[in-house]
């Protein structure tokens, strides 16, 4: 499995990517929506894990742009922002899951596999 992690908290994205790689999941990471769109255009990912509140382009905007390039992309939102509105908007836009930080890595991996199969 190959995933892309998108989070403006660089330390979080880098550490999570390392932990996933220790579990045989190839993980690339970027810290903003623009870089995520570039990566998605260059590579193929089974799942993209997106933060919601990011500088410049929000997670929802990033998702919309990714869907234009790769309509089949599987998206999981992973956020510290638990508003009902964001949750609804994420699900309405077609995200596979809307998960809250901090998360147990095995739960995230299970959701990644589930999303990839959808």
């Amino acid at each position: 499995m190959k995933v892309l992690l998108v989070d403006d908290e660089e330390e979080l994205a880098a550490t999570l990517a390392e932990r996933l790689s220790l579990r045989d999941i190839e993980a690339d990471w970027v810290t903003c929506g623009m870089d995520a769109i570039t990566r998605v255009g260059e590579d193929t990912y089974d799942v993209i894990v997106l933060d919601v509140k990011m500088p410049g382009m929000s997670g929802l905007e990033t998702m919309e742009k990714i869907q234009k390039i790769k309509p089949e992309a599987k998206i999981i939102f992973l956020t510290g922002h638990g508003s009902v509105e964001d949750h609804e908007a994420g699900k309405k836009a077609g995200a596979s899951f809307y998960l809250m930080k901090p998360i147990d890595i095995q739960v995230l991996i299970d959701k990644m596999h589930e999303a990839a199969k959808q």
Partner: peptide, 18 residues
């Protein structure tokens, strides 16, 4: 503020996990 704290907890969680 709670969003900020959640981010910090998430980083601690991943570092402790590693």
């Amino acid at each position: 503020i709670s969003h900020e704290i959640k981010n910090v907890l998430a980083i601690i969680n991943e570092n402790a996990g590693l």
